[in-house]
Amino acid sequence: MISFTSFPVQPERGSEYAKHFPGDEDDHMDLDDGEFEAGGSRVTWPGETITSSQAFMRGHGTYVENEQVVASVAGTIERVNKLITVRAIRTKYNPEVGDLVVGRITEVQPRRWKVDSNSRQDAVLMLSSVNLPGGVQRRKLESDELQMRNFFEEGDLLVAEVQAFFADGAMSLHTRSLKYGKLRNGQLVTIPPILVRRLKSHFITLPCGVDLILGLNGYIWVSKHVKENEQEGEEGFDAEAVYSNRNDFIDDSTRIAISRVANIIQVLASHFVPLTDTLLLEAYEWTIENDTDAKGLLSEDVGDALVATIAARA
């Protein structure tokens, strides 16, 4: 069961996603015991009364006033037992160990790279945390440090995993798997991190020949499909291909598919619809059935129709 809500921007449309605003007849949101059993969520705004403080405990994003739990930020209400929190819609990414992230190299430093990961501070990718030519397990030499820009340089995009945290809270990343590393042959789409749900796998392949990497930090990579067997084992991987800055040849049909998927993500994000692999597949099939091109998806009417159809199928 797919469940999602959207944050209302223009409530006068009467969309099924629009929520009431302060001043409506019912200005109080009561939560019963079965409210979130199915994993659903509700959207709130600063100052809205959520529930009684006698029945629930306040968490992040809330405060207590007149024995009522009140939202302090705009976002989705989340409940764990009797604890009520509000997860802000517009916020920086809050990382956890094991998260998959997509980032951009911002600086090359001695034995490390700084990476923009849409978090409160840049992440760090150590030279010792990447695959180097000649085998994963070999020691890093001084010559490797001198050639760091041959692996990653400023502006390069990469997918990595959060390995640990430094004392100042900065993320330590690693790319010690051939699933991770430099990104090519695609397009970057940025959405609010709250809209990327934790899935069993964040590497998604659509039937249209497009690969997706859903970074939990809100950076999504849409690219040409690459067969898994095109890479050799980790001990003998082709470093020149893995760290190449050149894109492969992409035919026109694949380019169109990449653009269509990227625009689908932007449309869903503009309606604050959380992304899942099933949802993206249904949205792509809808565009094919309705013969909607990539540019047409950015039309307001078409976007509303797409989201309404996806909601009806959920």
Rank of each mutant, 00 (worst) to 15 (best):
D277N: 07
G169W: 05
D24L: 07
V242T: 10
G103C: 09
D293L: 00
L183V: 08
T292S: 03
D99F: 05
T51A: 15
L212Q: 00
Q187F: 04
D26T: 13
Q10A: 13
R246I: 09
A312Q: 12
T287H: 02
V86I: 10
L127F: 06
R260A: 02
A305P: 00
E37W: 05
L158A: 02
R176D: 08
Q10D: 15
F56R: 05
L306I: 10
A308D: 11
S143E: 14
S6D: 04
Q54W: 09
L206A: 05
T292G: 00
L268M: 07
H60T: 09
M57Q: 14
S72N: 12
L268I: 00
G14F: 05
Q10R: 14
E285K: 08
T190M: 02
R198L: 09
N290G: 09
N131W: 02
Y243G: 07
D301F: 08
V101A: 04
E107P: 01
T190F: 00
Q231S: 13
S53D: 13
A160E: 01
A269H: 00
V196C: 07
D291K: 06
R79D: 03
T287P: 03
A312T: 09
G209P: 05
E65F: 14
V9W: 05
E232L: 13
Q137Y: 10
M57C: 10
G134I: 11
D238G: 07
I204M: 00
T49I: 15
E145S: 12
M148E: 08
Q266F: 09
W113P: 03
G233F: 08
N66R: 15
T76E: 15
E78A: 09
P274N: 04
G296I: 00
K224Q: 14
L31T: 07
I256D: 14
V196Y: 01
I204S: 01
R120I: 10
F249W: 05
V162T: 12
L214S: 04
S244F: 12
V69D: 03
E78L: 12
G34C: 03
R176M: 11
E240H: 13
G186V: 05
I194A: 09
R184F: 03
T106Y: 04
H225G: 00
N118E: 12
A167H: 09
E37A: 12
T287K: 03
S52A: 14
S117L: 15
E107D: 13
C208V: 06
T62Q: 04
D116M: 11
G39R: 08
V136Q: 13
I89P: 00
S6E: 02
E16W: 02
K227M: 06
G59E: 06
I50S: 01
A239G: 08
H174E: 11
L132P: 03
S117D: 14
A241S: 15
A164T: 14
G61E: 05
T91W: 06
A311W: 05
Y284W: 11
E107H: 11
T44E: 05
F203A: 07
M57I: 04
N185F: 01
W221N: 01
L206R: 02
A71C: 07
V242G: 04
R198V: 12
A305R: 07
L141P: 06
R313W: 01
I105R: 07
C208L: 01
L306R: 01
R79W: 06
I204Y: 00
F7Q: 08
V115R: 03
D291E: 12
I50Y: 00
R176G: 10
